[in-house]
């Protein structure tokens, strides 16, 4: 059987080889971004380009987190004045976190309550609502953005992070609803019935029995909601007017100054924008796959 063993080892080795090639190809853009972000200006444009920087530097990250002046100085004759986009980076980061968490919280609470209600009670419209949600979650966001914008104008909420929270609820709620509904449906209701018979109230049942069982679904829905909100460019671009209230996605695009692009800075910003998502992803990857199992998911 040595022939077979040799055969299976070769097979295994070639499988690993294929996997490595595919993975490297897929991850190359990210690796290159990381590498660029760690290079000093002189090395970024060097030929031949270097994958591992000869001289690693954190200057791009320091510039973003510390707020460095970005403009060239016109032959060194005078100092540039006024804030430059890089100086807002930390502020935009905080804004992004706020609107992402805010909208996710609302979407999850609303959709969990609704999904419970839809699967545990009988009333008119109960079977229509999930399909209505499904339809909503296939709507292009370009349809929502201007009507919502005009609504925010009337509510005097433009240039306010709250407008983005509402905007993101609009695009995340439908799929959270659909996902939670699919998940709740798969939870057997016998336990709840037993608890009710034992004298628990509906609220107790919901809090103590249903919520813990639904946790994987809630986590999956939260991840999707966070990804979508963190990713958004369109709503941020339209709803926000002042530099102070921008989110990361829109703000970082301002780094394209018109006549001067600092690629090191841009790549560092890209890395920093991806890190929170990466952490989330690594911690909750398992639930992501489970969530996809429960219902198809927006991308």
């Amino acid at each position: 059987m040595t022939g077979d063993a040799w055969w299976s080892a070769t097979k295994k080795a070639s499988l690993y080889l294929v996997l490595c090639i595919v993975t490297l190809t897929v991850c190359f853009p990210l690796i290159w971004a990381l590498s660029t972000s760690l290079k000093p200006k002189s090395e970024i444009f060097a030929t031949p380009p270097t994958l591992i920087p000869h001289s690693t530097t954190l200057e791009n990250y320091e510039a973003l987190l510390g707020g460095r002046q970005q403009y060239y100085q016109s032959g060194g004759a005078s100092q540039a004045m006024g804030p430059t986009p890089a100086q807002f980076f930390t502020r935009w980061f905080v804004n992004s976190v706020i609107v992402t968490l805010g909208s996710t919280l609302i979407s999850i609470v609303v959709s969990t309550l609704a999904a419970y209600s839809l699967t545990r009670f009988r009333y008119w419209g109960r079977s229509v609502i999930p399909y209505f949600s499904l339809l909503g979650y296939m709507m292009p966001s370009i349809i929502f953005v201007f009507p919502l914008f005009l609504m925010m104008v009337r509510l005097e909420l433009t240039d306010n992070l709250l407008s983005l929270v509402f905007g993101y609820v609009c695009i995340t709620l439908p799929f959270c609803m659909w996902l939670m509904w699919a998940f709740m449906r798969s939870i057997p209701i016998e336990i709840e019935e037993a608890a009710l018979i034992d004298g628990a109230s509906r609220y107790q049942v919901f809090a103590q029995v249903v919520l813990p069982t639904a946790l994987p679904g809630i986590i999956a829905a939260s991840i999707f909601s966070i990804i979508v909100s963190w990713n958004d460019y369109l709503f941020g671009r339209v709803f926000i007017n002042s530099l102070d209230n921008l989110t990361l996605t829109v703000g970082v695009m301002l780094f394209f100054e018109g006549t001067h692009v600092d690629w090191g800075l841009l790549m560092a910003a890209s890395v920093l924008m991806t890190v929170p998502m990466a952490i989330l992803f690594m911690a909750l990857q398992r639930h992501l796959v489970a969530g996809f199992g429960a219902g198809a998911v927006k991308g």
Partner: peptide
């Protein structure tokens, strides 16, 4: 981005 900015800021009355 001038035109987008112009439109959103003026339409937003800000």
């Amino acid at each position: 981005g001038v035109y987008i900015k112009l439109m959103t800021d003026l339409a937003a009355r800000r």
